[in-house]
Simulated scan of single mutants.
Amino acid sequence: MQPWIQQATAQTPQGVTLRLWQRGEEFSIRLTDGNELMNSRLGGSEEALATLALEHLQARPAPRVLIGGLGMGFTLRAAQTLSPQDAVLVVSEIVPELVDWAATHMAAVFGECLSDHRVEIRKGDVGAEIRAATGAFDAILLDVDNGPDGLTRDGNGALYSDAGLRAARKALTPGGILAVWSAAPDSAFTARLAKAGFTARAHGVRAGRSGRGGRHTIWTAVRPAG
């Protein structure tokens, strides 16, 4: 078996180190303690994040979608597949090096998806994007940290707080949808979504595309149209 080789490192704004590892054609982004945040073989649940949200928007012309976290691009590529040609797909990534890795070390994984005319990459905090918006997006897809129970950045918790969810609701158009990826279920978060005025549902999905691997959770939360 081929060994894992470290290709690059990056730091989050709070100084947490991310390490990019490669083994053959497989990539892994991990914390210093070895905890894996993402793997290029296991994108099924990240793709489901986009699928569940974009299916809700099928009848909307020129949908505007905000994706929080580039990661390995699984959510973005799934959104591209399901979105019309007049869609706008804004990707907010707070760690600039991840965008650079997409174009260099992981170019074979990303292909041409970042050159799509529908895609706009914004290097910065998706929370700030949300707080600055009013009715700007038809969908907000959050794959930030490990979900409501974050690992890499304390500030990510603000996205999932009562105030953060109210800001997301304000940033959505009427009938728009917030979708949130999580490594684990969280009944308290489901309750917070309802408290913030969403019609919410939790979905259990597999990590792998073939229906195998660990089980992750995706919430779909719709802002009422009225």
Rank of each mutant, 00 (worst) to 15 (best):
M1C: 02
Q2H: 03
Q2L: 06
I5P: 00
Q6Y: 01
T9F: 02
T9S: 12
G15W: 13
V16F: 10
L18K: 01
L20M: 09
W21S: 00
E25L: 11
E26P: 00
F27P: 01
S28H: 05
N35D: 08
S40H: 01
L42D: 04
G43S: 14
S45Q: 05
E46M: 02
E46Y: 01
E46H: 01
A48T: 08
L54G: 05
L54P: 02
L57P: 14
Q58F: 09
Q58K: 15
A62P: 00
R64Y: 05
G68M: 05
L70I: 02
G71A: 07
M72V: 01
F74M: 07
F74D: 04
R77F: 01
A79L: 08
Q80F: 01
Q80N: 00
T81Q: 09
T81D: 02
L82W: 12
L82Y: 11
S83F: 10
S83K: 07
D86Y: 08
D86H: 07
A87E: 01
L89H: 08
S92W: 05
V95R: 05
L98W: 02
V99E: 04
V99C: 10
V99S: 08
A102E: 12
A102W: 13
A103Q: 15
T104Y: 03
T104P: 00
G111A: 01
E112A: 13
D116L: 05
H117M: 01
E120C: 10
I121A: 14
E129S: 06
E129D: 08
E129H: 08
E129V: 00
E129Y: 03
I130R: 14
A136G: 11
V144G: 05
N146Y: 09
G147Q: 08
L151Q: 14
T152D: 06
R153V: 09
D154V: 02
G157C: 02
G157L: 12
S161K: 06
D162H: 14
G164S: 13
G164M: 11
L165A: 07
A171I: 13
A171G: 14
T173L: 12
P174N: 05
A179S: 13
V180W: 01
W181A: 06
A184Q: 04
D186Y: 00
F189A: 04
A191I: 02
A191T: 03
L193Q: 08
L193P: 04
K195W: 08
A202M: 15
A202T: 10
H203S: 10
A207M: 13
A207N: 09
S210D: 15
R212Q: 15
G213K: 05
G214E: 10
G214L: 08
R215L: 14
V222N: 04
R223H: 12
